[in-house]
């Protein structure tokens, strides 16, 4: 019994030592992982043939790699070549398994995210979703997502409205899509219109989009707050004849109850030299969508 236990310990120690060596190797001099390695096959069609009957399984592996690549690059500080493999990996995954639903929808959102949260390539996101529609023409969700990407990332409200209408016309599409399409056509680029649209999305219970919509709502709130703060600073200047030196001046003069913070709790930045208010550089809401006008 005791000998058995000792034996198990010895073996475990051996495997532990081996793992430590492997860890040391990977920390010490990791093999540079070029595109070459992750994407030994750039052509999805070649991969599709190569993997024979196991292409769906291979698609799973590439999907995992895509997520890891996205996650790792989002955490890493490097600027150059950020997210550069995201599109090829997603394209390969969907070529191997053209019905891999989640890849189109998540993938498009990943691709459309502005730096530093993503590569800021809504065009690639839309391309991916259009590929999804070609393979799965009945999926109204893809058309809806294209509309969303247009609305939020390219700022092309006309296109967005068109895609929402196309989605609404598809079989099985929910009624609220008509509403969304109408709002977009009438009030595209308008914050209240955007709020209504996002609220519809939140209520739709489309889990994967909810967090994106919540973030967008927070950004809208931040934009509103920035406008209000600019107005307060203007009033202070009119009243005192000079710009406030800091948020403290505004609090002392009872224009504000405390140091204002954005919806994520990060204080807004104020530059006394120019009088400009902005999001703190560390805020996760950056970058804000541009061209979103206030009515």
């Amino acid at each position: 019994m005791l000998r058995g236990l000792a034996g198990i310990l010895v073996v475990a120690a051996g495997i532990g030592a081996a793992a430590a060596v492997l860890h040391a190797r990977d920390v010490d001099g990791p093999l540079p992982i070029p595109a070459e390695r992750l994407l030994y096959l750039r052509s999805g069609q070649a991969a599709d043939r190569l993997f024979l009957n196991f292409d769906a399984l291979a698609a799973d592996v590439y999907w995992m790699r895509a997520i890891q690549h996205y996650g790792r690059d989002r955490k890493s500080p490097r600027i150059e070549g950020r997210f550069e493999l995201l599109q090829p990996l997603l394209d390969l995954t969907t070529t191997l398994d053209p019905h891999f639903n989640i890849v189109y929808r998540f993938g498009a959102i990943f691709l459309s995210m502005d730096p530093p949260n993503g590569p800021g390539r809504p065009d690639q996101g839309i391309e991916l979703l259009e590929k999804g529609l070609r393979h799965n023409p009945h999926r109204w969700q893809y058309a809806h997502d294209i509309g969303f990407v247009h609305y939020w990332h390219t700022g092309d409200y006309l296109q967005a409205a068109e895609w929402f209408e196309r989605a609404a016309a598809m079989e099985g599409a929910p009624d609220w899509l008509h509403q969304v399409a109408a709002i977009t056509r009438a009030e595209g680029g308008d914050r209240d219109g955007a709020r209504q649209l996002l609220a519809e999305i939140l209520n739709s219970g489309e889990g994967y989009l909810v967090s994106a919509a919540e973030r967008a709502l927070a950004q809208l709130d931040a934009l509103d707050a920035l406008d209000q703060l600019a107005a307060i600073i203007e009033r202070y200047r009119e009243a005192t004849g000079q710009r406030p030196g800091s948020w403290q001046d505004l609090v002392a003069a009872r224009y504000l109850r405390g140091v204002p913070a954005d919806p994520t709790g990060v204080p807004f930045a104020y530059d006394p030299a120019t009088g400009r208010v902005s999001l703190h550089p560390s805020s996760s809401l950056l970058p804000l969508p541009q061209g979103m006008r206030h009515d």
């Binding site: 034996g7 073996v11 120690a13 051996g14 495997i15 030592a17 081996a18």
Partner: peptide
């Protein structure tokens, strides 16, 4: 190391 542990 690993192979030795396995053989053990």
């Amino acid at each position: 190391l690993y192979a030795t542990a396995l053989i053990a």
